[in-house]
């Protein structure tokens, strides 16, 4: 895939005091590409993802989304640039005091200044895409975890992001609900969405990822196609990790 990079992480560093979480991370995600990040817990993969929309403030380095550096500009600019980077959290984080429809329309109305009719129509489209249009009037507490996560995906998609970040989107779900969320992600990939995914779903990575990145100790140890990483890993740390997770 020789497309232009949609998301570019350059020389990213993150330190908490004397503790270095991320060291010199360079990663490009091309338009329409699905890049999967794996690694042991504490390897810094979630922190890296959270730096991509500055929920975590990088200590140094650049984050470039569709040619624009989100490390530059005012806080207003940052709010606007975050619209282009959708994020899906492990814990869903739907707004419990709002209906599903309002969850999906809030940022459309307030940040994108869409009219109510526009926002509602867009929300219903997105809810249909994730198979949740029948629950538009329900409240988050009435939904299963898998349903909540699909609504959270619709909430992000409704803002027409250029990149979607997934932070362990299925880790908080009961096993029988994981499939419904993965199906939505697969569908997104088929429609050409650019995606950066942190997850432990190795089977899903093998099946759908364009590229797999293995992180450990705050650095990218190895990256390649799923066949390369899962079939013939080069680095010792990758081999050790993969043999551990495959049991």
């Amino acid at each position: 895939m020789a497309n232009r990079p949609m998301l570019e992480i350059a020389a990213l560093e993150k330190r908490f005091g004397s503790n270095t979480i991320l060291k010199n991370i360079d990663l490009k995600v091309a338009e329409g590409e699905l890049v999967f990040v794996i690694g042991p817990s504490g390897s810094g993969k979630s922190t890296m993802l959270r730096c991509c929309n500055r929920l975590e403030e990088p200590t140094s380095g650049d984050i470039i989304v569709d040619g624009r550096n989100i490390m530059q500009g005012t806080s207003r600019d940052l709010d606007r640039m975050r619209l282009q980077v959708g994020m899906v959290f492990q814990g869903f984080h739907l707004y419990p005091h709002m209906s599903v429809l309002k969850n999906v329309t809030l940022a459309q109305r307030k940040a994108l200044k869409r009219t109510k009719a526009e926002a509602d129509a867009r929300a219903m489209d997105m809810l249909e895409r994730v198979g949740m249009e029948h629950k538009a009037d329900a409240y988050p507490a009435e939904l299963s975890g898998g349903q909540q996560q699909r609504v959270a995906i619709a909430r992000a998609l409704a803002l027409d992001p250029k990149v979607m970040l997934f932070d362990e989107p299925t880790s908080a779900l009961d096993p029988e609900l994981v499939g419904s969320v993965l199906k939505v992600m697969k569908d997104l990939r088929a429609k050409g969405m650019t995606m950066l995914v942190v997850s432990h779903e190795m089977g899903f990575a093998r099946e759908t990822a364009d590229r797999v990145v293995f992180m450990d100790g705050g650095v990218i140890v190895e990256e390649g196609t799923p066949e390369q990483i899962f079939g013939a890993p080069q680095a010792e740390r990758t081999k050790a990790f993969l043999s551990r997770v495959s049991g």
């Binding site: 929309n53 929920l55 806080s75 606007r80 975050r82 959290f89 739907l94």
Partner: peptide, 10 residues
């Protein structure tokens, strides 16, 4: 975090 990530101001 969810609010910020969807571009809402503080």
């Amino acid at each position: 975090e969810a609010a910020k990530a969807t571009g809402l101001s503080k």
